[in-house]
Design a protein around this nucleic acid. Structure first.
Lengths: 227, 227
DNA sequence: ACAAGTTTGCTAATTTTTTTACAATTGCAG
DNA sequence: CTGCAATTGTAAAAAAATTAGCAAACTTGT
């Protein structure tokens, strides 16, 4: 669960030469989204590549029953929609703006043309995609191997290091439960224990991770023992 | 857990124009591996891109305690090692040959040069990488949402549709347990129930999925009910 | 065809997690 | 300031999964 946001490596935009960066910005349309505004839904087949300029976005799925499972959080420099455009399948996740967010949007055909003309673009996208795959594998591994308490800690760490986040994580414990795929009671117990250990501070509708490094450290030691 | 093998889309090799396909084969070295032979280990930083020509490979991690968790299975036309070469980080998974396997190996520098010269190569790699990411997200979703019985069924389905596989899946229940990250007893119960339902037939060191479509059907109905 | 080593099927005891239910707390709207 | 709705903390019971252990079934090498 090592995150999709506190990037292990550079983001797509980081990987781009300046010239290309400028070209993209020139060719795309800047669109602003308010916090919690839906950017697009699972199943859409709008062919648009989105690049986050500022703010952030969270990816997840809304269940038929209104539940929500968060899959990942994206920050500035990261992209989404390229799967839809390049592979030609409908979007698999709902995307929601995380706070005031500015996104650069490029129509699919224009983007693919740019890719053809500028091999560097494909290469940057490839690198960021490979990095993403790597992280997903790490996350899957964590999900299978780590006990509930550690998994919860890891999620908090991911959220704490997310872009557009103050110290206080404004999520309800029910949200966290959905995200982790465990019960609210279990979350309550887990965060309770973490709070006991002085790693986090609990509030109403929010959790404070004052010292992410400390939490990370605790987690690392835990994982070490487990393996 | 929708597979990394019964490809949802085309494989890397499928995406390649014939000319490039031939070029790669000409530039690479064919290497044969016996069944269960270790191709490379987690942590290696050998810079080699591997393309499976025939046979297959399974990716996973060996724990310090000798345990093994399978992450995915790759078949002909699929690649691995590109992460290492392009991003420059050590390998994250142990790869083991699945039966008699022939692999085309390209040294990293040669591969990156080819990528620079042939943009089509980057593009094919990009598509297959995006497809892989998509599948991983599906798998993660399944892991969080599906109960143990369904997860087991899904794994069997994935394995049954894997390349290099006869009707009989030659895995011990302990193998399946490792792969699913659950206990052997739980697997035993799960496959027992599936056998009761007539969806599979149990044997010694192997499981027969005579009618994958039927199993798929059962799973679909189950998932529908769950959501 | 036998002995040795795996693998499977089961059981019982234990641990973990979920469910259900309810009280206490918090923020907010009026 | 007060009452309401949402959120959190907790406890007890139920369900699910794990561990540990053992006997029976099965392969294989000799």
């Amino acid at each position: 669960m090592n995150t999709l946001l506190s990037q292990l490596g550079p983001t797509f935009m980081d990987l781009l030469p300046d010239a290309l960066h400028d070209l993209l910005v020139a060719q795309g349309t800047r669109v602003r989204y308010r916090g919690d505004q839906l950017i697009h839904s699972r199943g859409d087949d709008s062919q648009i590549v989105s690049i986050i300029l500022s703010g952030g976005a969270r990816a997840g799925t809304f269940g038929h029953d209104g539940s929500y499972t968060m899959t990942s959080i994206l920050g500035p420099g990261q992209t989404f929609g390229e799967f839809t455009v390049i592979v030609g399948l409908p979007r698999s996740l709902d995307m929601v703006a995380l706070g005031e967010t500015e996104i650069l949007e490029l129509p699919g055909p224009k983007f693919t043309r740019l890719c053809d003309e500028q091999p560097e673009l494909s290469k940057a996208l490839l690198s960021s995609s490979l990095i993403r795959t790597y992280m997903l594998l790490e996350i899957m591994d964590a999900m299978r191997r780590l006990p509930l308490l550690e998994r919860t800690a890891k999620l908090l760490l991911i959220l704490a290091e997310a872009p557009m986040q103050t110290d206080h994580l404004n999520y309800t414990q029910a949200d966290l439960a959905f995200t982790l795929g465990i019960s609210r009671v279990s979350v309550s117990k887990a965060v309770g224990r973490l709070a006991e250990l002085g790693l986090i501070t609990l509030g109403y509708r929010n959790i404070l991770v004052k010292d992410p490094a400390k939490l990370q450290n605790w987690l690392d030691r835990r994982q070490h023992l487990a393996v």
